[in-house]
């Protein structure tokens, strides 16, 4: 019994110290405004985490939009309400699936790469060498990656939702023969700028913060061994996915819970 308690206590303290180290990392990397000289570094990282994620985002978005549209249309057609396909598709995408699925894909595609990159830099002591040269690795390596994540994920989310709506249109209108007028006007009647698009983008920004933070911290904190690196990469994907899903529930409760 006391062993159990002790192990729970040790786990909890480990968790607290990791949280503390992560917060310190965040604070030391992001304290102070970014300097102009850092812009080129951020652009390079946006290329790595944003531009390079485009293909997987576009492909997934199109198939998710198509599948949603197919399900909505066939089920709603049983009640003669197939005109609601457009609004259902748009609301589900803007409020939930757009931000969440993009963040999950981003964690798998870009987050794991970030962790591996930073972890390898640490393992091969590139970070220590930077410190010896008088360059702050937190500002030079960590901060541009966090900024790039914060900029890229909302943009990827917008692209995701646009492509998914297009995929939905292709299936519902061009293939199943839904009436395009009812489809678009139902969508425009039911979707509001701030309530749906704006709050979805706020979600996406929060997810960007979580995923990049977890990714850079896992990389920076990884034990400098091959095993430690593989653990850290796995942990990035697992922790950020769980965090994204849990936070999504909380945000939905705050944004849309009517009470």
């Amino acid at each position: 019994m006391s062993d159990l308690l002790r192990s729970i206590g040790v786990r909890f303290l480990d968790f607290l110290s990791a949280l503390g180290r992560a917060s310190l990392l965040w604070y030391r990397a992001m304290a102070g405004l970014p300097r102009w000289g850092d812009v080129a570094l951020v652009v390079k990282q946006i290329y790595n985490v944003g531009f390079m994620s485009l293909i997987i985002i576009v492909l997934s978005a199109f198939s998710i939009g198509a599948v949603l549209s197919l399900q909505f249309y066939t089920q709603l057609a049983r009640f003669g309400a197939q005109d609601a396909t457009g609004v259902g598709l748009a609301l589900v995408l803007l409020r939930e699936l757009g931000p969440v699925v993009t963040a999950l894909l981003f964690a798998g595609r870009a987050g794991s790469a970030l962790t591996a990159e930073i972890g390898l830099m640490k393992t091969t002591e590139q970070l220590s060498i930077m410190e010896m040269m008088g360059v702050d690795p937190l500002r030079r390596i960590i901060a541009p990656r966090i900024w790039a994540g914060l900029i890229s994920l909302p943009l990827l989310t917008a692209i995701f939702s646009m492509v998914a709506v297009y995929g939905g249109v292709v299936v519902a209108v061009n293939w199943l023969g839904a009436d395009p007028g009812g489809f678009w006007s139902g969508m425009q009647d039911g979707v509001e700028l701030w309530e749906d698009l704006g709050k979805g983008m706020v979600k996406s920004l929060v997810f960007a913060l979580l995923v990049t933070w977890v990714a850079v911290f896992q990389g920076y904190d990884a034990p400098p061994t091959a095993e430690g690196m593989s653990m850290a990469t796995t942990q990035t994907v697992v922790i950020s996915s769980v965090l994204v899903l849990a936070t999504d529930f909380l945000l939905t409760l705050v944004f849309y819970g009517d009470f």
Binding site: M162, V165, V191, L193, D196
Partner: peptide
């Protein structure tokens, strides 16, 4: 696109 075409601003 999302603002104009989807939410109809």
């Amino acid at each position: 696109f999302l603002a104009v075409q989807v939410s109809g601003v």
